[in-house]
Write a protein that binds this DNA or RNA. Structure first.
Lengths: 109, 109
DNA sequence: TTGTTAATTAACAAACATGTTAATCGAATG
DNA sequence: CATTCGATTAACATGTTTGTTAATTAACAA
């Protein structure tokens, strides 16, 4: 399972942690926040929070702006849009899916 | 990090593995497939594939239909739509985000 | 300078994820 | 009935993630 070079999979993995998902939700709802501001989101140490932010940043999900001694994090909109495109794309398939299912099933007695 | 009861986080985590993302993409593109049909997607054993399918199923991302000795897997459309709604929702925020960023930064010298 | 604040990196333990092979189980086939 | 097929569960090794505390770095304030 070394193929983690797929950007979409990396993003999903980053969002798969509840704390990191909460971080992104917070940034979506309240706008840019410093690392310290996000501290009350989860009952974890500052280093742990810092690591989560690093994961989100390396996945391209959040942007980091350095302001003196603070790091201001904000959502990276294109990353979310890419996820949206993937998930709602090929919608025409969905309706056809269940029909196609029956072709795979044995006739009912 | 015990809060894994968030359904959205569970789904993202499931899609965060490259093999599982490939499985979902395959089901989206070609429609329902049996566990065996999906075997050529990754160079892993049948038990490993079976485990991935179980993760996807428990996350609500795929449906499993039993047909005699086969298990037919297909995409669970609402799950993908839920992800789409999350990712593209609150779009009005995005444009405002960068403006709000400046309010967090110190004046430039 | 000295001390405080914001955030990170380093080192390490515990928990989780993912892969393997062997064993199991029901359905199909000769 | 004995065997093969499709898929899963069991047991276990290994690598990755996530958390902790301690140390480090840079900016700020006295």
């Amino acid at each position: 399972m070394n193929e983690s070079t797929d950007p979409l999979a990396i993003r999903f993995a980053a969002l798969g942690d509840p704390t990191r998902l909460a971080i992104v939700n917070r940034l979506k709802e309240r706008g840019p926040q410093s690392a310290g501001d996000l501290g009350d989101l989860a009952d974890i140490s500052a280093p742990a929070m810092s690591r989560h932010l690093k994961v989100l940043h390396r996945a391209g999900l959040v942007r980091r702006d350095v302001d003196k001694q603070r790091r201001i994090y904000s959502v990276e909109p294109e990353a979310l849009q890419a996820i949206g495109s993937w998930s709602i794309g090929r919608e025409e398939f969905w309706t056809a899916s269940l029909d196609r299912l029956t072709t795979h099933l044995s006739p009912k007695e």
